[in-house]
């Protein structure tokens, strides 16, 4: 049982670290919570039997790192649009091309002022 919770806690903490470095860093909260809960259970069970394994502390460390990184990104990273120069050029070219095409259409029959 102790082994199972330790393994699950480590897996969840690794997942939390992976998610925290990705753009979906906010989602790292879920595996972090799971890692903390399983880690605490594993810690409690280990303490009951005597020796607490270093791997449980390592899982806590990973989880805290993931949570710190997630919090930092959520507070300090502003969501801003990337480089749109090419899109702006596409827009301009598309509009010019569209005007040429619209000139060829029979708009006079379509009741426009």
């Amino acid at each position: 049982m102790k082994q199972l919770f330790t393994t699950l806690s480590v897996i969840a903490s690794i997942l939390a670290v992976i998610l925290s470095v990705l753009p979906v860093s906010n989602l790292a909260i879920f595996p972090s919570a799971v890692a903390l809960i399983f880690g605490l259970i594993a810690f409690y069970l280990s303490k009951k039997t005597g020796k607490v394994k270093k791997i449980i502390q390592f899982s806590f460390l990973l989880t805290i790192m993931a949570l710190l990184l997630t919090t930092y990104k959520a507070v300090f990273n502003e969501t801003e649009v990337g480089n749109t120069e090419i899109l702006a050029e596409t827009e301009e070219a598309s509009k010019e091309e569209a005007i040429e095409e619209l000139e060829e259409l029979e708009l006079e029959e379509l009741d426009i002022e």
Partner: peptide
């Protein structure tokens, strides 16, 4: 948008991912 024959309405929809993506 003005052409020689008429003035049309140009509707534009843009989707741009945030820089982190």
């Amino acid at each position: 948008v003005k052409t020689s024959k008429a003035t049309l309405l140009h509707l534009k929809c843009k989707a741009v991912t945030y820089s982190k993506w």
